[in-house]
Design a protein around this nucleic acid. Structure first.
Lengths: 120, 120
DNA sequence: CTAACATGTGAACACCTGTTCATATGTAAG
DNA sequence: CTTACATATGAACAGGTGTTCACATGTTAG
């Protein structure tokens, strides 16, 4: 099965170094469970800070701290509606990123062999 | 432009909590510049530890430390070839994840307005 | 066998980061 | 105006993490 050739078929190779740092910053923000759950929560549509805090069982203060980072990185965008502020995904790429990573984890759990070793 | 509706069109909503933690772990690994550059390097095909270290200007020891985490998370797979060990992407999803995140960053740099504020 | 090379591993250190708490800002209602 | 609610912010602490260094393991060549 010549699957290896297909894996490296995407031509996003060049990718300057400082761009890699900017990319890593985005991944780092999604790398925290609380923050990732906040982002995932917004996949259902715009959510207010209080709703997110209540749904995830986190303090509003903590949620606000995380939201600050997420909107600074333009992963989420705020939108005031009365007293509350709703956050939504900044663009559709974020949803794709998460969907692809879900696919990776699911496929990985399917093949529960070849953990770490180097072919026995 | 009714773009907002399209953003939340992906139905990956449910997503259990411990699954979110597993996902975050993957993103966290890509959240370090050195580690991300290592993964990006493997987009050009299998790379030996020494080649990666030389290309990225990192010590072989550091590269080996990072590779341990990356293969434990099954992001990269090792393959012995003579004295050296080559690492390749474990599956194609990783490339898609990176490609989508690149698209996000690029689109973000294009619209250099609306940094953080809440619509003035 | 030994020597040379490639990779892995463990400890130690400095640094960063997530969380909590108290407090501040801002907004709407009475 | 004052009161109550929603969100934001700053300081401070505990715990985690990337990097370096010295050394171990494993593989091939002679």
């Amino acid at each position: 099965m010549p699957q290896a050739a297909a894996i490296h078929s995407l031509p996003l190779a060049p990718l300057s170094d400082d761009k890699a740092v900017e990319l890593a910053e985005m991944f780092r923000l999604l790398g925290d469970p609380s923050r990732l759950r906040i982002v995932i929560e917004t996949l259902n549509g715009p959510q207010s800070v209080g709703d997110i805090a209540a749904t995830l069982g986190l303090s509003p203060s903590l949620v606000s701290h995380h939201l600050r980072l997420l909107r600074a990185a333009r992963l989420l965008s705020p939108e005031r509606r009365g007293k509350q502020i709703f956050y939504r995904l900044h663009d559709a790429h974020i949803a794709h990123v998460i969907a692809d990573m879900v696919a990776h984890v699911n496929e990985d759990n399917a093949n529960e062999d070849s953990h770490d070793e180097i072919e026995p």
